[in-house]
Computed example of a mutant assay.
Amino acid sequence: MSINKPSIAPKPTDSEPSRSPLLRLLSQPRIVVPALKVALVVGSILNLINSGEKLWNQHSINLWQVGLNFVVPFCVSSYSAARNDLRRQRGE
């Protein structure tokens, strides 16, 4: 005899987007490749703005900050592209 345990995870409502289609879209090359290009351009510009003087004067730089200058634009670009694609598929 098995006992059914209640699910802990909340069920998505109509106004709340389902996470699995969004995660699937985030791994698509048509989302990832343009997001990498955006991250390369925007991250390079941010690094020049934030660490340009240190680089020019050959001082040490914070590698954590350099990495974040590339990761954040990638995340923003890929999320917004996937979210727009999901909304387009749903006809919103």
Rank of each mutant, 00 (worst) to 15 (best):
I31N: 05
I31G: 02
I31K: 01
V32L: 06
V33K: 11
P34E: 05
A35R: 00
A35Q: 00
L36Y: 01
L36A: 10
K37P: 02
K37N: 08
L40S: 04
V41L: 14
G43E: 08
I45V: 08
I45N: 03
L46Q: 05
N47C: 02
L48I: 04
N50G: 05
S51Y: 09
E53I: 08
K54M: 04
W56L: 15
N57K: 06
N57G: 01
N57Q: 12
Q58F: 09
H59L: 11
S60E: 13
N62R: 08
N62P: 09
N62L: 15
L63D: 13
L63V: 12
W64E: 06
W64Q: 13
W64T: 08
Q65I: 06
Q65S: 13
V66K: 02
G67W: 03
G67R: 09
G67M: 10
G67A: 12
L68D: 12
L68N: 12
N69E: 09
N69H: 10
F70R: 01
F70G: 01
F70V: 05
V71A: 15
V72P: 10
P73I: 11
P73G: 05
F74Q: 09
F74N: 04
F74S: 05
V76M: 12
V76D: 05
S77Y: 01
S78F: 01
S78N: 01
S80A: 11
S80N: 08
A81K: 06
A82H: 02
N84E: 11
D85L: 15
